[in-house]
Amino acid sequence: MIPNDDEVAGGYNFAYLDEQTKRMVRRAILKAVCIPGHQVPFGSREMPLPAGWGTGGLQVTASVIGPDDVLKVIDQGTDAATNAVSIRAFFRRVAGLATTERTREASLIQTRHRIPETPLTEEQILVLQVPQPEPLRQLVPRGAAARRLHAFADYGVMYVKLYEDIARFGRVTLAYDYPVLVNGRYLASPSPIPRFDNPKLDNSRALSLFGAGRERRLYAIPPYTRVASLDFGDHPFEVQRWSVGCALCGSRASYLDEIGSGGPGARMFVCSDTDYCEERREASAPARRAAGGGRP
């Protein structure tokens, strides 16, 4: 969808940020790509969205996007979530960009909390919004101490946390934002994506850029980079699984959201990735029609 003229705001540079700022962000991104998983400080700007609502992702997107790009924005897997709607509208307004809800059609996907189910390609960039870039923050709240641990690749404290979880609860108690080791060197936060999405980062064909505006850090996972979720030989990393499939498309391979279905106790699950779900339903509709089954 290409925005109308009256949708586009005058008085702002293409994609809101001035070119000097974009250059600064791009330099930080280049450094981040060269040192996969390493957090690069950058001169994060105040943005017209509140800090913590995707201002890091917004700055990364604004700095790498061009007039020919097609942008997709998702939040919790869906294009329809309020903040995704708002960010998409922002770029239509300040960049006059074409936007899409189709994963396959997008050249740049900005996301919060999910990675699309549809595998990404070498032609695509994934921009992840990151609230807390420091994977050690909850264990080592002071930044100077955490930086020293990164410098020595001393991640014992995280392994101890995982070990203690297993000893106390029989499993690791991190459901999302599960730490990964990038390229065998830097411990990184995959952002608060569910564990389910971690394997998608491993040897991904797409470039993944992580922007944390409030914390003034960005980092990257270049294409075809090894990304390992921390685990132990006898307690391998596991992803979430459901005993049912999506109530709409039947997929048993996607991350599911619980939706209220009225009565207490009744639980229904549907794909969190709405584009994936829709594509599957469209693909199966003709087949069902041919069989004289489903609705036209």
């Binding site: 705001a9 903040n83 307004r93």
Partner: peptide, 21 residues
């Protein structure tokens, strides 16, 4: 916590999704 909740979501008067321009 959930996409749909009993009673529904009502945005009402909020600055949440305004662009701070």
């Amino acid at each position: 916590t959930h996409k749909s909740v009993p009673g529904g979501q009502l945005l009402g008067p909020t600055y949440d999704y305004t662009h701070r321009l």
